[in-house]
Amino acid sequence: MTVNSIYKEEKKSAFQKVSEVIITMASRPSGFIGLSILIFHIILAFISPYIAPYDFKAINPTLMLQAPSAEYWFGTDDLGRDVFTRTILGGRTALTITFFGSLIALLWGGLLGIFCGLVGGKIDDIVMRIVDAFLSIPWILAMLLIVSLLGTSTEVLIPALGFFYGKGIVRVARAATHDVIAKDFIVSARARGHSNFSIIWNEIIPNVRDAILVEGAMRWSWMLLGFSSLSFLGFGVSPPTPDWGLMISNARGLMSFAYWAVIAPIVGLSSLIIGINLTADAFAKALGIDRSTKAPV
């Protein structure tokens, strides 16, 4: 008897699993585009300091608001700084801060959600009402309050963003846990007398991990937009550090005659957000999670 290969699955190493997921993601057109954009941005963030043609803070009054040319590819802004240089450098801070912010959001949101889903009862009720209360506060107001009290340093921004974007993950993690918790293997573990920690670690996390990771990836793109909004309002990165939100904010008044100074950072920001979104979608599909039904946001 010959057996087809589809039923012959051996235990795979973590590396094999990850590479398999990435290959599946890239095999879809949308996933391929998303991944390419995201990887392009990440590589750019790493190498931009070395390839930037000009100094990002070099002010030159004689070169104010030059249109794009062979010398200045994306033109210059109102202080005569090269827009191309500032655009390729502008994503670095945003990408770094939001990446670590998402990690924090994932960690506390995921763990709290799983814990609430598992213990249920009064603890769950109380925690979820607090989360709901926080969800009802406009995040930007709260962020402005925090930033104006504590300053705009990275050490403040990362945990603050992480906290505000983790609330949504709590609900997703809790819902995913509720799906798993009713299954008999959890009942069985409980009846055997395993501790809550052991049940979370061995039984629940492997089954909700995918849903939470996908949600975290989505949160990343939201956070990026949120962080750029802060910069736009002047509460994110402080000048003269190049940042897309800040650049858009500075150049928006001159939009009618110097459109290039606005368009370049807008393209940078939106392409990165679309890239992360497409990647997260492809990631969800590659893991077999249909986000339209599984993630109640």
């Binding site: 299954k183 008999d184 007398g193």
Partner: peptide
Amino acid sequence: PNDLRIIQLIFQNPDESLNPNH
């Protein structure tokens, strides 16, 4: 733990009683 050990359960649906990730 010993009280828990002496009584074990077997469930109706083995799809649900075995953790799919183990």
